[in-house]
Simulated scan of single mutants.
Amino acid sequence: MPDHDAAAPARSGIDRRALAARIDHTLLRPEATVAEVLDQAAIAVSTGCASVCVQPAMVAAVVGAVGDRIPVCSVVGFPHGASLSRSKADEAAAVVALGAAEVDVVADLGALADGDLAAVAADVAAVREAVPNVVLKVILESALWSPAVLRQACEAVVGAGADYVKTSTGFHPAGGASVDAVAVMRDAVGDRARVKASGGIRNTAAALAAIDAGADRLGLSATVAVLDGLA
Rank of each mutant, 00 (worst) to 15 (best):
V165G: 02
Y164W: 09
A156E: 14
Y164T: 08
G170S: 10
V165C: 03
C154G: 12
Q152F: 02
A174T: 03
V179Y: 00
S168M: 05
A162I: 09
A181L: 01
T167L: 03
Q152R: 15
V157C: 10
H172F: 05
A177L: 01
V165S: 02
A177V: 02
G175T: 11
D180C: 00
A181H: 06
A177K: 07
D163F: 00
V179A: 11
S168Y: 06
A181D: 13
T169D: 07
E155M: 08
V165H: 04
G176A: 07
P173Y: 08
V158I: 14
A160Y: 11
A177G: 04
S178G: 03
G161T: 11
S178I: 01
D180P: 00
A181G: 03
E155P: 02
V157K: 12
V157L: 11
V157E: 09
H172P: 01
F171N: 01
E155H: 15
G161C: 09
S168Q: 08
K166G: 01
Q152M: 12
V158A: 14
V157Q: 12
E155C: 08
A160Q: 14
E155D: 15
V179C: 01
G170E: 10
A177I: 05
A153M: 14
H172T: 09
V165E: 04
A177Y: 05
A181N: 12
V158Q: 14
V165Y: 03
S178W: 00
P173K: 11
P173L: 10
T167R: 08
D180S: 11
G170H: 07
G175Y: 05
V179G: 04
G175P: 07
A153N: 15
S178N: 02
A156S: 15
P173M: 10
A160K: 14
A160R: 13
T167E: 06
V179L: 00
G161A: 12
P173V: 06
T169S: 10
G176S: 07
G161F: 10
G175W: 03
A160S: 14
V179R: 13
G170R: 12
A160M: 13
A160W: 09
V165D: 03
Y164D: 03
H172K: 09
G159M: 12
D180Y: 01
D180H: 08
S168T: 05
G159E: 15
G159P: 07
G161H: 13
A174V: 00
H172Q: 10
K166Q: 04
G175F: 00
D180N: 05
T167I: 11
F171A: 14
K166Y: 02
A160F: 06
F171T: 08
Q152I: 01
A160V: 12
A177D: 02
Q152G: 10
A156M: 14
F171E: 05
S178E: 00
A153G: 15
G170I: 11
A153L: 14
G176R: 05
H172G: 04
A174Q: 05
K166I: 01
K166P: 00
G170C: 06
A181E: 04
V179F: 02
G161W: 09
V165R: 08
V179N: 01
A174E: 06
G175I: 10
V179S: 02
G175K: 12
T169Q: 07
V179M: 00
Y164F: 15
A181W: 01
G161Q: 12
C154N: 09
G159V: 12
G176T: 09
C154F: 07
A174H: 03
G175C: 05
